[in-house]
Design a protein around this nucleic acid. Structure first.
Lengths: 234, 234
DNA sequence: TCCCATTTGTAATCACTGCTTACATCCCCT
DNA sequence: AGGGGATGTAAGCAGTGATTACAAATGGGA
């Protein structure tokens, strides 16, 4: 946990308000999702006036960004943990483990997942930490695919950029479906944690068996009509 | 558009406030996303007092649900349109077209996509229309996969449930990545509309070339440690 | 040791939100 | 013609993020 070493409130001054506010915000997030966080309530829980937090955070967004950074640390940790438990030299197995670790964390921490995935609740671009950890995961994925290619598990002309994009989109989509509550409509018959593992395994299987022939076929044309901003074809 | 046939305001009564409010809400959504919608502002634009909308919508959620129903109509239309333009008997081509139509609509109408995908802004379960149209698309996907199987394009023991789940997750994930603004981090080199098409094609290729052997391998084990609600392994 | 600038808190206030209640007005049906 | 139900208004509640002027505590230099 975000150890807030509070040196006892001395009366007027709090002592460690910044960290205490982050902890309060985390608590609020866990109780009722990102929308349950209000600066006032965080201040109240820290035993402080409603205006005090703004000495430490320029805005509510800044507070939630601090929460996101902690959440991202834990996600990175979970992924690293999943990787370290792989007892195989097969890079594809490791690749799948990343996805599995990501999904387990997202499903186990849905509200934190929502926060790090949002670009309206937090200021992602302003955080070196958030951008850096995200990029680290992406690099690891590319590394593993490169290894797989060297070992002949991927076609020599495999399209890494789109492969990584596809893998990320797939895992992100699964996580969001669970978190957004879309599972009842799309897969009611099984607990999400299990269905997600099976789907992931299916995806990895498909990825490694891409025949060069079909994947090199020309793309189907765009729909002839263009979409206007109301979704109508014109 | 949601033709609000307004029979002239007679002075006190509005005449067609319900539809007018929906239109105003749509306008607000298009201007600044779902968060830009406020009941008061919709009322103001309809030229009516702040309390009036509550005669027609029990809550803000109910108003947004009405917006979602209109958006869903257009999504269904876009998908149907994409399907009708397929000039091939290959069910896999049609399957890809559904994904392509979905993605084009989502990218072209990001805020409407956000609304129909949310389960907090709207009351999805309470709307027969929303549930029905969603289910119709899912059925169509299963139909096409069934045809593909009959024609030998999918393994005889193909796992339809998880295949449809995977396809849906993949397309949903791509759409959300675009809409949520994750593309700069994951695929900065290309316009999303193009990258998305390529990734989709890659996914479809992988799906149809699933070797039975690998996809029937046992699942890798769950991470040995369990995740607590803070994302820590215990 | 004292002093004062800096840091960190308070109090009051603003504009905005969703929503409710009591009351006014108008339309339509008998 | 008139009354009942539908639809609007006015006023107001509690809660929000954020800003401002002011007060208190802290700690480093003389």
């Amino acid at each position: 946990m975000a150890k807030a070493k509070t040196p006892h409130r001395t009366g007027y001054h709090h002592g460690n308000l910044r960290d205490t506010l982050i902890d309060a915000a985390i608590q609020l997030v866990e109780e009722g999702g990102p929308d349950n966080v209000s600066v006032r309530e965080a201040a109240k829980r820290a035993g402080v006036s409603p205006g005090a937090p703004f000495r430490h955070f320029q805005s509510k967004t800044a507070l939630l960004t601090a929460v996101a950074e902690q959440a991202m640390n834990r996600l990175t940790e979970a992924v690293a943990n999943a990787l370290s438990e792989v007892d195989s030299a097969d890079p594809i197995v490791a690749f799948e483990a990343i996805g599995q670790g990501y999904l387990e964390w997202a499903i186990g921490n849905p509200t934190h997942f929502q926060i790090i995935s949002s670009r309206t609740l937090i200021d992602f671009d302003a955080s070196d930490s958030l951008r850096g950890q995200n990029e680290a995961i992406r690099r690891k994925m590319i590394d593993l695919l490169t290894q797989a290619q060297r070992q002949g598990q991927l076609a020599a002309n495999a399209d890494f950029d789109h492969l990584v994009l596809a893998a990320r989109a797939f895992v992100y989509g699964l996580a969001r479906m669970v978190v957004d509550g879309h599972f009842p409509e799309w897969h009611p018959s099984e607990p999400p944690s299990l269905a997600v593992r099976k789907a992931l395994h299916l995806f990895i299987s498909g990825m490694t068996n891409l025949s060069e022939a079909r994947s090199q076929e020309p793309l189907p044309p765009l729909s002839s009509g263009r979409l206007d901003r109301n979704g109508q074809f014109t």
